[in-house]
Simulated assay, not measured.
Amino acid sequence: MTAFLDFVGLCEKELRLCGVRTGERVAVLSQGTERLDYADAFLAAARRLGGDAYHVRLPSTLNGAGLDSLVVGNTPLSGNAAAVDALKQADLLIDLIFLLFSPEQLAIQASGTRVLSVVEPVAQLAKLLPTDGQRERIEAAGELLSAARTLRVTSPHGTDVTYRLNTYPTILEYGFTDTPGRWDHWPSGFLFTGGDDDGVDGRVVLGPGDIVFPFTSYVREPIHIAIEHGRVVDIRGGFDAALLRDYMASFDDPDAYGISHIGWGMHENARASSIAVDFQGIGMEARATYGNVLFSTGPNGELGGTNHSPCHVDMPLHGCTLTLDDEPVVVAGDIAVPALQAPSRRR
Rank of each mutant, 00 (worst) to 15 (best):
M284L: 13
V161R: 00
G50S: 11
E285I: 06
L243N: 12
L17C: 07
R220A: 15
V8W: 06
G281F: 10
V71Q: 11
S344Y: 06
E221T: 15
K88A: 09
S30W: 04
D196T: 13
Y54N: 05
F251D: 00
C11Y: 01
M248R: 15
D278L: 11
Y257L: 13
G333W: 02
W264E: 03
F190M: 11
G291Q: 09
G265M: 01
G301L: 06
D196A: 15
D178M: 06
L116G: 06
V232D: 09
N63S: 14
T33H: 13
I171Q: 12
V331W: 02
E327C: 07
S274Q: 12
V72I: 14
H55L: 07
V331Q: 11
N269R: 15
F251V: 08
A141R: 00
E12Q: 12
A46L: 06
F295K: 02
V56F: 09
A288S: 15
A126I: 00
T150M: 02
S102A: 14
L70C: 01
V331L: 11
C11V: 02
D196R: 12
G9P: 03
E12H: 01
C320R: 07
A39T: 02
R47N: 07
G19I: 05
V71Y: 14
D334P: 01
F4W: 09
H55T: 05
R25Y: 05
L324A: 07
D253P: 06
H312I: 12
S155Q: 06
V331R: 10
R57F: 03
L100E: 12
I94V: 13
I97T: 15
S217A: 15
H185V: 13
F4H: 15
G195C: 09
F101A: 01
D278G: 03
A140E: 07
P121A: 03
C311W: 01
S260N: 12
R114A: 01
G189C: 13
C18H: 08
T113L: 05
F176H: 07
Q89G: 15
A256E: 00
A286G: 09
S111V: 10
A226V: 13
I259A: 01
D255I: 03
V161Y: 00
G199K: 05
E34K: 14
S102W: 02
A27M: 07
F251E: 01
V119R: 05
R35P: 05
S344H: 08
P156K: 08
V8S: 01
S260Q: 10
G158V: 07
R25D: 05
D68C: 10
D178V: 04
G305R: 06
R164L: 07
L303A: 10
T193L: 03
A242H: 14
G50V: 11
S274C: 08
H229F: 07
G199R: 04
A90K: 05
F295C: 01
M315Y: 02
A242S: 14
R220I: 14
